Simulated scan of single mutants.
Amino acid sequence: MENIHQTAITLRFRGDDLDPEELTSLLGAIPTNAATKGAPLQSTGGRERVAKTGHWHLRVDPAEPGEEFDEQLIRLFKQLTPDLDAWRYLSERYVGNLFVGFFLGTSNMGVEISSETLSAISARGLELGLNIYSHSDE
């Protein structure tokens, strides 16, 4: 099976009463992006809007060909607390997920996720969301 061309992973938490400082303290990392509900936000295009809910996001550098998904996820988790009680507290209080984008180099590629990686995601109470972006052979 041919490897995925590129993988992007973002850890995301959201909730109406989410306090980004609390998550930063408990997880031990500074988010890539965070806001409280009702906070003003500005898009990359400069358009202003208001946060509909609180959020805390941490993006890991994209994986390139040759780096396995499991290795990239380990890089993300190494930045964060290993304290599973803290993770369970957050996952019970907020919606937590891993947003994963798989970018295909050809129209037929695949990825395998080890049972250890699936276990690490589950132990943290996180949902796993997969977005697959297909390469066009045209």
Rank of each mutant, 00 (worst) to 15 (best):
L27T: 04
S25L: 10
Q79T: 09
G38M: 13
P82E: 09
A39W: 15
W87R: 01
G66V: 13
N33T: 05
P31N: 10
S122E: 13
Q79I: 05
I113N: 00
L41R: 15
G110H: 06
L118N: 05
G125K: 02
R12G: 01
L104G: 01
P40M: 14
I113R: 00
E116N: 03
R93Y: 02
G54T: 06
G129T: 08
T7P: 01
A29V: 09
Q42K: 12
L11A: 02
E21P: 00
Q72T: 04
I4A: 05
P82H: 06
L80T: 03
R59P: 01
R14N: 11
Y133F: 11
Q42Y: 08
L27W: 05
T106W: 06
L98I: 11
F13T: 01
A86L: 11
S43R: 11
P31I: 06
P40T: 14
D61I: 10
F99Q: 12
A39D: 14
L26T: 03
E48T: 13
L84R: 01
K78H: 15
D19C: 07
S114Q: 08
E64Y: 15
M109K: 10
K78E: 15
S114M: 05
G96Q: 07
L27V: 05
Q6P: 00
N131Q: 12
T7F: 10
G45R: 09
E64Q: 14
R14H: 11
E67N: 06
S136Y: 12
E112Q: 11
S91N: 10
K78I: 04
E64R: 14
T81D: 04
H57E: 14
D17K: 15
L26Y: 10
H135C: 05
G54R: 07
H135V: 02
V95S: 08
K52C: 05
D17V: 15
A51M: 14
I121V: 13
A34W: 04
G101M: 06
V60L: 09
H57D: 14
L130V: 07
N131P: 00
E112M: 06
D61H: 14
S134R: 12
F13R: 02
W87K: 00
H55M: 10
E21D: 15
L27F: 08
F102C: 02
V60T: 05
L18T: 03
G54H: 07
G66N: 14
L11Q: 01
G38V: 13
K37C: 07
F99I: 11
L130K: 02
L104A: 04
F103A: 05
G129A: 09
P31A: 09
D19A: 12
L128M: 12
H135S: 11
P65R: 15
L118M: 11
N33W: 09
A34N: 08
I74V: 06
A8P: 00
E68K: 12
